[in-house]
Structures are given as C-alpha cells and as structure tokens.
C-alpha cells in the first residue's frame, strides 16, 4: 500500500532516510531540528505546514515521533495524518519504540547520536558549550560535568555509512567525558513502512481529517 499522493513533513534528523524513500513527484517539507527545543513552537510550525500542505484525499506522512509531546494536537482538516508510534528520532532510527525502550532498560545512561546530527542541536557535546560564556569561569567546568554526569555511554547510530572522522570525533567526545563508545546498527524498516506502508495499528497512528494526534 502506498499513499495516493505523496506528501510528507519530516524532521531534518530523519530526512537522510526518508527523503530517498519518497518518489520524485513527492511533496516533502523538511523542518529544522532546532524546533524540538520548544515543543509548543514545533507544534505551531507543524500545524502551519499541515494546513499549507493538506488536500482532500491526501495522506500527509509525518517524519516525527511524540517529540516531547509536540505532536499531540497536530491535526489536518482535509488530509489523513500518518505518524509512527515512537518517542523521537532515536526510536525512529532504532526501528521501534520497543527497541529504544529496551536499550534504555539495559543502560539508561546512553546518549544516542547519528553522524548527521553532529552539527545540530542534537549534539549535546556542542550544546553544553553554548552560552557557557554567561557562566562565571570558575563554575564552567562544574556545570559541564553536571550536564553529562549520568551519561556513561555514547551510542553512535550506525546506518552503515559512518565516516572515519565521525568515529574519531565521537571517540574524542567519549574519552573527554569518560564515556564508552558503542555502535548501534539502525533499522530502516519502520521509516520505510511510513513512506511505503503498510501502516499497522501497532506501529502507526493513522488519523482521518479532523482527528488530532492523541497522547500515545
């Protein structure tokens, strides 16, 4: 089963997987990762993009998860919305909410990174240095340590195309902050099914026009 008209709104964090899966005639809107910092802002933007894209009889595929509950309340008046039942981009690349949860059950101290996220707000190692100039110099070290103290593992999400410089940079981060570095193979099945179907109930929310994304 594939959508009658390909329309998708996806987060930049997942665009590298989703975009190549769409057909050339697809209408795909890629939104910046930074929106996730403020769930209300992300929701407002998604509502606007959905309203701009919606069309009678079309399905709009959302390349997102619950994303800090930003997706709740997103609704289309005229199109069907399809959203995978995952928490965020990590679950999306791991292939399921269950795998994401199981990995955190085994080790809650994992910080997940994908190589394309290194230059974005999802790179905590850069984020912890932002705004540090506002912190008194004698406190900076303590603040940085506080932010990372509970992470013991840097889990590099590996789609089989890792660049040597990515691994090298992640190894540097891991050593600097006393973390283990592990590679986790990604699974593209869920995101492939988002684009190509089938949308099984246990994996996807399929919301007819007028029905908002619920808490899930």
């Amino acid at each position: 089963m594939s959508p009658k008209i390909h329309k998708a709104i996806v987060c930049r964090a997942l665009a590298h997987v989703l975009e190549p899966l769409t057909s050339p005639e697809s209408e795909i809107m890629i939104l910046e990762i930074g929106l996730h910092v403020d769930p209300q802002r992300l929701k407002a933007r998604l509502l606007k993009e959905v309203a701009d894209m919606e069309e009678e009889g079309a399905e709009i595929l959302l390349g997102y998860g619950l994303c800090g509950r930003a997706l709740e309340g997103v609704v289309s008046a005229r199109s069907t919305l399809v959203l995978p039942r995952i928490d965020d981009c990590v679950g999306a690349l791991l292939g399921s909410r269950a795998r994401h949860k199981e990995l955190l059950r085994q080790n809650a101290g994992c910080y997940f990174l994908e190589q394309r996220w290194l230059t974005t707000e999802l790179n905590i190692f850069d984020e912890i240095l932002k705004g540090l100039e506002r912190i008194p110099p004698d406190k900076r070290d303590k603040i940085v340590k506080m932010m990372l103290k509970n992470y013991n593992t840097l889990a590099l999400l590996d789609s089989g195309d890792l660049l040597p410089e990515t691994e090298s940079l992640c190894l540097t981060y891991a050593r600097r902050y006393n973390m283990d570095l592990i590679n986790l193979k990604t699974q593209s099945g869920l995101l492939t099914r988002l684009i190509k179907g089938p949308w099984r109930e246990e994996e996807f929310l399929v919301l007819p026009p007028g029905k908002p994304v619920p808490f899930f």
Partner: peptide, 17 residues
C-alpha cells in the same frame, strides 16, 4: 528564555545552582 532560544542548557543548569 530557553524556549525562545535566548538561553541554552548551561544557563538552565546554572540557574538551578
């Protein structure tokens, strides 16, 4: 301020301190 991008994670932590 964090929500509107004016502040970052270190600011949140420091304000807690």
């Amino acid at each position: 301020r964090f929500g509107n991008g004016e502040y970052f994670i270190p600011d949140l932590i420091f304000s807690g301190e």
